[in-house]
Amino acid sequence: MSRLIDPWGRPRWLRLTTWAYIAWSLVPVLAAIVFSFNDGRSRSVWQGFSTRWWWGDPNLSVFHDPIYTNALVHSLELAALDMLIATPLGFLLAIGLSRWRGRGSGSANFLMLVPLTTPELAMAVSLLLVFTQLTIIPFTWVALGTTAQVIGQVTFSVSYVVVIVRSRLASLGPEYEEAARDLGASARQSLQHVLLPLLLPAAFASTLIVFALSIDDFVVTQYMSAGGETVTIPMLLYANARGAATTPALNAVATIMVIVTLVGVGGAYLVLRWFGHRSGEAGGEAAGQMGMDLTGME
């Protein structure tokens, strides 16, 4: 019998490249996590296992040093505020923009895309200048600090919410709404009784992405900050990563950030899968899109 050949053979070097890439992308992060358990002060030479930088050391460990605990609390605080404001704002904007035709809608659509296509630094500079130089209401109400940080984060988060919710709206098509209208629901009732429940998984997914965006954000958050009270974990990483005196507690706080994000995202994925299981595809699709949507694609 002659040897059967697979017309769609899988070159071994592609497989190797892929696994090598995955190792390259993840091993350094794992190493940084491992170093948070280092027994010595070094973040580059392994000196044995300990939990002193997590909780053992009464002054310098993550859970005891106020520098870290403050940053942790402030990061979570900003993330919560960002989620609370950006999600409803973006959700309504997505629904509105998807149906609003006529004067102004084109500019609104363009405006929504600006934060996605501008380097964050340009946004950060512009917000800094407007809050420090423009002396008219409402900008005079905003001082640098938590308020400005929330405003900055919401401003770029909103666009992500709009993109996610709109892609879900597009995949739903107009038919459910038409069916609701046909069965006697007014425009508002069909929005409330049909569109909103169907968009719930997308709203949920976008909330989580806003959370991840906020937790990980550095540039805008730094530009909008005002001193020690408003330092977040990414800001701590930026300020101390190269510091000679920095201990593995920095690795520990970074690890906490990674864990919080992954638990959130993993949990959200499971919830969306459950949504999807209940209604056929709706949530499953949203779960699949979560990764895609993060990049602001389609």
Partner: peptide, 11 residues
Amino acid sequence: TVFQNYALFPH
């Protein structure tokens, strides 16, 4: 109307 793909509300 009975829609082409029925448009039954999945939720």
